[in-house]
């Protein structure tokens, strides 16, 4: 049904940073870790909807800027003891180009 959509180059995102992809489903946050792994999450913290794309990225987590919840980038799960999950999207990187599956 859906296809891989080319959204840009890995260098468009700073290391330990994130960029937003605007879509009909809402904003999607694309993260780049220190090891250049790319992850995609719906840009809404499961707690109170804070924009995760604006948080500080560390290890394989991001800290939500509103109330400091820590969200795992790969699974979207909140780090215990907080409970909740942000929607994840599939991404893949080919020769530096990032593709997203909506």
């Amino acid at each position: 049904m859906s296809d891989w959509i080319e959204i840009g180059h890995i260098d468009d995102i700073p290391r330990l940073g994130s960029r937003v992809v605007k879509s009909k489903a809402g904003d999607i946050a694309i993260f780049r870790t220190a090891q250049d792994k790319i992850h995609a999450l719906l840009d809404k913290c499961p707690h109170k909807g804070g924009p995760l794309s604006q948080g500080i990225v560390h290890g394989d987590q991001v800290t939500c800027p509103l109330h400091d919840w820590k969200i795992q980038l790969a699974s979207g799960e909140a780090v215990a003891p907080d409970e909740g999950c942000a929607r994840t999207y599939r991404v893949r990187v080919k020769a530096g180009t990032i593709f997203l599956m909506l």
């Binding site: 959509i5 959204i7 840009g8 468009d12 995102i13 700073p14 960029r19 937003v20 992809v21 605007k22 879509s23 009909k24 904003d27 694309i30 997203l100 909506l102």
Partner: peptide, 12 residues
């Protein structure tokens, strides 16, 4: 500039 602009707008 990357900090303020979205990466891309996906229109179906």
């Amino acid at each position: 500039a990357h900090e303020f602009a979205p990466m891309i707008e996906v229109v179906d």
